[in-house]
């Protein structure tokens, strides 16, 4: 938006909303919304507590493990689906189904299979993130220009060389885009998993703060989570931009 000829960056409206929040909080309308400043103060206090630090370690560990597994399984499966018709036919249905299925309903099953602990959360993260990574890797591999592959064959490249030097590199932008969306979904997965399990990590803290009506800390924790999700997404986006120069040339 431009105001009086000056371009105002879009994200600055968040500052405006924070101010609105502060005013609403000061007016003491509902106990749910404490002033922004006291939420920030609670946040600063919160990150110094041992319970937050250990919850963060647990959360990060489940998230990192789940994502690593999702990438390790998702990218090869997606590439295989993009290259081998039979694999695509067999897995296509399930991948397309699970990418938009209500996976929150699966968490109770994971809870009885893997117990009320980190394993369940780790599997939840994996299940939330993996499908979109598969689909994007598949799309990336499938849209490699046939002329590029023919070029490789004309110059005598082996099948292996064509695969590693042409197909994989050419599909890299889509693979990364899939991983970025997978990361965002993984964050949602870790939160849904922990809240449903409710005895570990942030899930335990949310349960604790909401039961004791500690709204300052509840919101502080929420804002930390939201900010982490946005930062993560921005970081991958930045990385994607660095390889965009050849994605745009296609």
């Amino acid at each position: 938006m431009t105001l009086f000829g000056i371009r105002i960056p879009m994200m600055t409206s968040l500052i405006f909303w924070a101010l609105v929040w502060e005013i609403v909080g000061r007016m003491d309308v509902i106990f749910l919304i404490p002033p922004m400043t006291s939420v920030i103060a609670a946040g600063i206090g919160l990150v110094q507590t041992g319970s937050w630090q250990s919850a963060t370690v647990i959360t990060l560990r489940s998230f990192a493990l789940g994502m690593a597994m999702a990438i390790a399984v998702g990218v090869p499966l997606g590439v295989a689906m993009g290259r081998v018709k039979v694999v695509d036919n067999i897995f296509g249905l399930w991948v397309n189904m699970f990418v938009s299925a209500p996976l929150s309903a699966l968490v109770p099953i994971l809870m009885i299979l893997f117990g009320l602990g980190e394993t369940t959360v780790f599997v939840t993260v994996f299940l939330f993130a993996v499908w979109i990574i598969v689909l994007d890797a598949r799309a990336g591999v499938m849209q490699v220009p046939p002329s590029l592959i023919e070029m490789g064959r004309c110059y005598g490249a082996s099948r292996f060389t064509i695969f590693t030097k042409i197909i994989l590199l050419s599909a890299l932008p889509e693979i990364l885009a899939g991983i970025r969306i997978g990361l965002i979904r993984g964050v949602k997965g870790v939160v849904i998993g922990q809240i449903l399990v409710s005895v570990i990590g942030y899930g335990e803290l949310f349960e604790l703060y909401s039961r004791s009506f500690d709204m300052e800390r509840f919101w502080a924790l929420t804002i930390i989570l939201f900010a982490a999700a946005m930062l993560l997404s921005a970081a991958v986006e930045h990385f994607e931009k660095r390889i965009e120069y050849y994605a745009g040339a296609r």
């Binding site: 968040l14 749910l32 929150s104 965002i184 964050v187 949602k188 870790v190 939160v191 849904i192 809240i195 942030y202 949310f206 349960e207 909401s210 509840f218 924790l221 929420t222 989570l225 939201f226 999700a229 946005m230 997404s233």
Partner: peptide
């Protein structure tokens, strides 16, 4: 922000 964020955290609220 709301789309990227884990809104599930707000359900208890």
């Amino acid at each position: 922000v709301l789309q990227a964020a884990p809104m599930a955290a707000l359900v208890p609220l």
